[in-house]
Computed example of a mutant assay.
Amino acid sequence: MNSQSELDRINRVAWNSSDAERVMTFGKNFSDPGEQAAFDWLAPRCAGQPLLDIGIGAGRTIPLMTSISDDYIGVDYTQKLLDLAKARHPGRDLRHMDARDMSELRSDHYGLAEFSWNGIDCVDYDDRVRILEEMYRVVRPGGYVLFSSHNRGGPGYRENIWQLLPQFSFNPLRLGWRTLRSARRFQLGTLNYLRNVKLNHDYGGYAVKTAAAHNFGIVIVYTTLREQRRQLAQVGLQIDAVFGSSGGERIPDDVEESDAWWFHFIAHKPLAARRFD
């Protein structure tokens, strides 16, 4: 099995884990200030238009998206999480679908196609391009895409297994509790890290690396601003705005480095867009 298919297999296992279910059902609205800033920017531009929500997990983004428009479809490739979303949001059009092949969806139709919580980072580079091409295809000319992606220069890229060790305290009871609480996480995290670290590779403009989330149980892509801008242009999308996750600040077009954990990219399909189908 090659490294690309191995990356996909590892992440699919993680999405079916109890830890993923816990995180995905945790009661929160926006994932971070950057996502809220991106939605605030898009809401008046996409109000009332058909919306496509990709990688919905257990359904966190459904209320966010349907506050913009009730013409809504949500998709996810993990049946377990999709079933949770259906139970929490009965009556919504929620479908089992892989973002790399959304051929059952109409071309040139949606006013917004959104892929949240860095979901696009969980496939290899070639499949990432396929997802962006599919998002390009399904949005109407003038329509928008929104997705988030981990920052190659951010603090998340520097995370390592030692952070799973208990934080020292001079209070012996507190230290003992922290030690007990972290024992299982450190054991599982170390096992996952040692199993997945072979896939780590820095390609310059982007990198593939095992991430701390889900006890180092996933392997993801970390991108740079320069590379992601280039990739979007390659697909035919024109960037409108980029927001940093931490403070929700808009990143200027001429900036190439940021300390944000991840980015929220907004781009649109030109009015005179070419078609893929």
Results as ranks from 00 to 15, higher is better:
A183S: 10
A183Q: 09
R184E: 05
R185W: 05
R185L: 08
R185Q: 14
R185K: 15
F186M: 10
F186Q: 02
F186V: 14
F186I: 15
Q187Y: 13
Q187S: 13
Q187V: 12
L188K: 15
L188Q: 15
L188G: 03
L188R: 15
L188V: 15
G189C: 03
G189N: 09
G189T: 09
G189Y: 04
T190H: 02
T190C: 00
T190V: 08
T190W: 14
T190Y: 13
T190R: 06
T190P: 06
T190I: 10
L191D: 05
L191P: 07
L191R: 14
L191F: 09
N192L: 08
N192P: 04
N192W: 13
N192I: 05
N192M: 11
Y193S: 08
Y193R: 09
Y193T: 01
L194V: 04
N196Q: 06
N196V: 04
N196F: 09
N196S: 03
N196D: 07
V197Q: 13
V197T: 08
V197N: 08
K198C: 03
K198Y: 02
K198D: 11
K198R: 13
L199F: 01
L199S: 05
L199E: 01
N200S: 05
N200G: 03
N200P: 01
H201N: 14
H201G: 06
D202G: 12
D202I: 09
D202R: 12
Y203P: 10
Y203T: 09
Y203E: 15
G204D: 07
G204N: 12
G204I: 14
G204Q: 09
G204L: 07
G204W: 12
G204H: 10
G204A: 07
G205W: 07
G205N: 11
G205C: 10
G205I: 13
G205F: 02
Y206A: 04
Y206C: 07
Y206G: 04
Y206V: 06
A207N: 03
V208M: 07
V208L: 00
V208S: 06
V208I: 15
V208N: 02
K209E: 11
K209V: 11
T210A: 08
T210Q: 04
T210S: 03
T210V: 14
A211G: 08
A211H: 13
A211K: 02
A211E: 13
A211Y: 12
A212S: 12
A212V: 08
A213W: 15
A213I: 00
A213M: 03
H214W: 12
H214G: 05
N215R: 08
N215L: 11
N215W: 02
N215G: 05
